[in-house]
Design a protein around this nucleic acid. Structure first.
Lengths: 170, 170
DNA sequence: TCAAATTAGATAACATGTTAAATTTATGAC
DNA sequence: GTCATAAATTTAACATGTTATCTAATTTGA
């Protein structure tokens, strides 16, 4: 359908560099794959009244008793401003606790509240059920392969634009 | 660093279902992988004055002489409202052309303008150079494997929540 | 022919993504 | 101790994501 490779309107492949077919570009493939998975999770999360991002935050908090905001941002892959707004919301809804770090008043220590933990406990079986479906349908082995490749890709990308390790690209 | 597997604060694995480690969840892996790739492309796109989403639109338009808005939305994986705003912007900047479909006045036929095509021609070599770097660093074979797995995952996911083929979940 | 249902696209409203700037607190040089 | 600088977080401003609603054009069926 969208496989029309010869309609270049005005640019023959010989004279201009030709981009790989759009739908096959790596970023689009990753985007589509992620969306195909998230579609199933989002539906359940919505029933529990949390967005995907809010769930990421709660989920990350469930792995440690307390986390700083910056640490949480790294873990959830959210930027500071987004996270900041989400924390206000989760706090107002009583799902998390924020206490100042006595050693550094710039820092907040974030943790799950009892009701936040309860929410996690409620969502977990549903989430795991979906994950099991994916495993069965896609195959445990392939899932493992995919995870390995994704991790390797991340590693490979980490070393490309940087002059030194961890050096910001700009 | 975030590999702390034993800090379950209050919930032993025996009593509560335990979620797979957050950072290893498939959606997070896909998100991180995509971000690690896009980081490199975004930097170049920005120098050319287009966002990632705008580039997706131009890129999709470069595969066909004309596209309808809905078709473009599917191809770029953008939702209608986002695309609508982006098209207004690209039109005002003269990068695309919008002409009404005489056969159905609800439809617009979108196409690249000359300056839109020129922009593509300018970005293409940069984009391809980045892609080559990725290929070299990550490996052609692995890249192919990854693309295959992603496509298979999409296929697998497509058949999960649906009662019939293409039936909306609700 | 005409009213109801459908369809394509746009607009509205609010959440999040993203970059820059502001705020508050720490740290270090003098 | 005081001032400049840095760091952690928030606020601001604007683009995009997302769902719902709206408008206009088309189709359907009596």
């Amino acid at each position: 359908m969208t496989d029309d490779k010869t309609t270049g309107a005005s640019s023959p492949a010989a004279t201009r560099l030709r981009l790989r077919h759009f739908s096959k570009s790596l970023p689009m493939s990753l985007l589509r794959a992620r969306e195909s998975v998230m579609r199933h999770f989002r539906k359940s999360l919505r029933e529990f009244g949390v967005t995907e991002q809010q769930w990421r935050v709660l989920r990350a908090l469930s792995t440690k008793p307390q986390m700083e905001v910056a640490e949480l941002a790294r873990a959830t892959f959210l930027l500071g401003p987004s996270l900041s707004r989400i924390l206000v919301d989760l706090d107002q809804r009583g799902l998390i606790l924020r206490e100042p770090d006595p050693a550094d008043l710039r820092r907040w220590m974030i943790s799950l509240s009892a009701s936040g933990s309860a929410l996690i406990d409620n969502v977990t079986p549903v989430s795991e059920a979906i994950y099991r479906q994916i495993s069965q349908r896609f195959g445990e082995d392939k899932l493992g392969q995919l995870q390995d490749l994704l991790a390797e890709l991340e590693d490979a990308m980490a070393g490309i634009g940087n002059n030194g390790p961890g050096a910001p690209a700009d």
